[in-house]
Amino acid sequence: METNEKKTADWQLHELSDRMVTYNEGDPKRIQHLIKVHYFARMIGLSEGLDAATQLILEATAIVHDIGIRISEKKYGVCDGKHQEQEGPAEARKLLTEMGTFSEVQIERICWLVGHHHTYDCIEGMDYQILVEADFLVNIYEDNLPVEAVRKVREKIFKTKAGLSLLDRMYL
């Protein structure tokens, strides 16, 4: 990636992160969650050698992956994964479109990933796999999952070498 392209991608992600902090203003737990998921996704994606375009989509999705929580709480009084997947894509599309720096192809993929990030039975694409792994790395800690549950997640969910290494070094 050329220096100008990297700077552009870095600034897109910076601006998107800043917008998500504003979106979640007053909710430090959600803000910290998105930052942690973003950084783990970044680490895994870089370690796995993703191409620049996929890396950008992965990182942008990691930043907005839980954007459906607030609207789900307002509409349904809950923020479970099903409702997040249902409400998140439209919210993500609004935010990404307002920025004006993501292409329609990028927005489509990001919204699709947001709408599937709690669906684990048909993971397709490295961006999807890594997003799920990064979210699990953070959720295991935040939800204080017992070691046996972590082992099951490792067996059923984790596939990337980098994600497995992080999981093992952190929890097992």
Results as ranks from 00 to 15, higher is better:
Lys152Glu: 15
Leu13Ile: 11
Thr8Asn: 13
Glu91Asp: 07
Asn144Trp: 07
Met99Lys: 08
Ala53Val: 05
Gln84Lys: 09
Ser17Met: 09
His116Lys: 13
Val21Glu: 05
Lys75Pro: 06
Ser103Gln: 09
Val150His: 04
Asp66Cys: 07
Thr160Pro: 07
Leu113Asn: 02
Val147Ala: 15
Val114Asp: 00
Asn144Asp: 13
Leu145Lys: 08
Leu16Gln: 01
His14Ile: 12
Trp11Leu: 13
Glu142Thr: 14
Glu87Pro: 02
Val150Trp: 03
Tyr141Arg: 13
Thr61Ile: 03
Leu172His: 08
Asp135Lys: 08
Arg70Ala: 14
Asp143Arg: 15
Gly26Met: 06
Ser72Gln: 05
Leu96Lys: 00
Val37His: 02
Leu166Met: 14
Gln129Lys: 07
Thr160Gln: 08
Gly68Cys: 05
Val114Trp: 00
His65Tyr: 07
Leu164Asn: 06
Gln84Trp: 06
Leu131Thr: 05
Cys111Leu: 02
Arg70Asn: 14
Thr54Cys: 10
Gly26Tyr: 05
Leu95Pro: 00
Lys94Gln: 09
Val153His: 05
Leu145His: 03
Lys29Cys: 15
Glu124Gln: 12
Glu15Ala: 15
Tyr120Gln: 08
Gly45Tyr: 00
Leu34Gln: 02
Ala90Pro: 01
Lys75Trp: 08
Ile130His: 04
Ala134Thr: 02
Val37Ser: 03
His116Trp: 04
Thr97Gly: 08
Met20Tyr: 04
Arg151Asn: 11
Arg169Phe: 08
Ala41Tyr: 00
Lys159Asp: 08
Gly49Pro: 02
Met126Ser: 12
Ile35His: 12
Gly125Met: 06
Tyr128Thr: 01
Asp168His: 07
Ala62His: 01
His117Met: 09
Ile107Leu: 05
Leu113Gln: 05
Lys156Arg: 12
Val147Lys: 15
Arg19Leu: 05
Glu98Gln: 11
Glu15Met: 12
Leu137Ser: 01
Ala149Ser: 15
Asp10Ser: 09
Ile123Pro: 01
Gln129Thr: 10
Met43Gly: 10
Thr160Cys: 06
Lys159Val: 14
Asp66Gln: 02
Thr8Leu: 14
Ile35Thr: 12
Gly45Pro: 03
Val105Glu: 13
Glu98Cys: 04
Leu164Gln: 03
Met126Leu: 15
Gly163Arg: 00
Glu87Ile: 02
Tyr23Pro: 00
His117Gly: 08
Glu85Val: 10
Ile107Gln: 04
Glu73Phe: 11
Leu96Glu: 00
Tyr76Phe: 13
Gly81Glu: 01
His118Cys: 07
Val37Trp: 00
Lys6Tyr: 15
His116Met: 10
Ser72Glu: 08
Ser47His: 10
Ser103Lys: 11
Leu166Ala: 09
Tyr141His: 15
Asn24His: 07
Glu133Trp: 03
Thr22Gln: 13
Asp127Lys: 07
Gly77Ser: 11
Val105Pro: 06
Phe40Tyr: 10
Val150Leu: 12
Asp10Lys: 06
Trp11Gly: 07
Glu5Asp: 12
Ser103Ala: 10
Gly26Ala: 03
Gln12Tyr: 01
Ile123His: 03
Cys122Asn: 12
Ile69Lys: 10
Asp27Phe: 11
Val64Leu: 04
Glu124Leu: 11
Thr22His: 09
Lys74Thr: 15
Leu13His: 06
Gln106Ile: 06
Glu142Met: 10
Leu13Phe: 06
Lys156Pro: 02
Leu113Ser: 02
Asp18Met: 14
Gly88Pro: 01
His83Glu: 13
Leu113Phe: 02
Trp112Lys: 13
Asp80Arg: 06
